[in-house]
Design a protein around this nucleic acid. Structure first.
Lengths: 122, 122
DNA sequence: GGTTGACCTGGAGCGCACTCCAGGTTGTTC
DNA sequence: GAACAACCTGGAGTGCGCTCCAGGTCAACC
């Protein structure tokens, strides 16, 4: 069990999240128990990579840092909070579906304007 | 030709955009040639309503104020800028499609986590 | 004619999510 | 052993899109 770890620079490279943002997430409680080398430098695990990818997915679809913090805090408590976490995810899911629908409407409007621009003269 | 106009308060009500934001959009060049009553108060037209709805649609799908300003500025120049405006819309269209795709991926991930939370014990 | 309410202007302030910076430590390289 | 690179911490700064505020005008109502 070689248990590879990543340096901060490697982690940033892998996840596409900047060093500053990784530290910021940790400070905000979104990324807990990050290992340290003897010299105090962070050492990220593959699990950390996966988790940051989840964080980014939720962030990119509009979940706020505060909501993510709540979600993480529940995870830290233990399995007893599964129902609450499930509910957060279900609510967020509904939100994402709403976003898709909103964007579908936007596409209609944009297409309408595009056809106007394409059609008239020339 | 009764040509109804809306007071700022009515406009805010109709569009769901706050008074402050309407003024802000105007100051930023997103909403031009708003009529004024004799006392200097704004009077919005039905066209203004439609245009603000377009602005909101583009804003809500991630177009920045700066890009909207550019788009409006082209419109103000005249019909000669139609190709540029078309291109802006086409680029934005691609972006919105990308957002939809991104959100579809997010749904997959969320569903995956939801089924994990739903499945294990209880 | 005093008060109220809707509006005006210019400019300051705010919340969010980062992003940058100063000053310091540690480990390696010439 | 000097220089450099990678990292550390705490805290300040930034950009965006609003949002709020102070001080003022104007018309209508009691």
């Amino acid at each position: 069990m070689a248990m590879t770890t990543l340096t901060p620079a490697e982690m940033a490279e892998r996840t596409g999240v900047s060093l500053d943002t990784l530290r910021y997430y940790e400070a905000e409680g979104l990324l807990n128990d990050v290992a340290r080398a003897e010299n105090g430098h962070r050492r990220y695990s593959e699990d950390d990579v996966l988790w940051v990818e989840v964080l980014r997915c939720l962030r990119d679809t509009g979940m706020t840092i505060e909501q993510l913090r709540d979600y993480c805090a529940l995870g830290a408590v233990g399995p007893s909070t599964k129902p609450q976490r499930l509910e957060i995810l279900q609510r967020h899911r509904a939100l994402v579906e709403q976003q898709i629908e909103e964007r579908r409407c936007a596409l209609d409007l944009i297409d309408h304007k595009i056809s106007y621009y394409s059609g008239e003269d020339q």
